[in-house]
């Protein structure tokens, strides 16, 4: 199973999908396999402005707690409210219904890989 080709991937295992000038952010299947069952997901709120490398949220599972990063600086403009009641959406559909937040970027993506390169580095 390969990662969707329509997005960019970071070494910290987030996917970034550019759409209408925004970045939709989520975690990859590789990350989900390492996390196992997600029990909690919380992004910083709408309006949170951040630099690259600054945590913008957290995902917790029975096994571990992981910070979430975006490969571009920007501002959170929407968060996936459905995850509050059902964080397992991340397990069920990490590239779709399990998206984490939408970001208005204030700079370009940096250090990301395309799907092919990401999958080569992170085989499932």
């Amino acid at each position: 199973m390969s990662s969707p080709a329509d997005r960019q991937y970071s070494k910290s295992h987030e996917w970034h999908k550019e759409e209408n000038g925004l970045i939709i952010l989520g975690v990859t299947q590789f990350a989900v396999n390492a996390l196992t069952d997600v029990t909690f997901a919380e992004m910083k709120g709408v309006g949170f402005k951040f630099e690259r490398g600054q945590p913008i949220g957290v995902v917790e599972s029975v096994k571990t707690t992981s910070d979430i990063y975006c490969a571009a600086p920007g501002e959170i403009v929407a968060v996936n409210e459905a995850l509050i009641n059902d964080p397992s959406l991340i397990n069920q559909d990490c590239y779709g219904k399990g998206w984490l937040c939408k970001i208005k970027p204030s700079g370009p993506l940096s250090g990301t890989l395309d799907a092919k390169a990401y999958d080569a580095e992170n085989p499932l």
């Binding site: 396999n33 196992t36 069952d37 096994k63």
Partner: peptide, 19 residues
């Protein structure tokens, strides 16, 4: 899904730890 535990290659989970 295998992983290292104390020098052994062990099953961390098969389907889902919660299940």
């Amino acid at each position: 899904h295998m992983g290292e535990y104390a020098g052994w290659d062990m099953p961390l989970y098969y389907t889902s730890p919660l299940a």
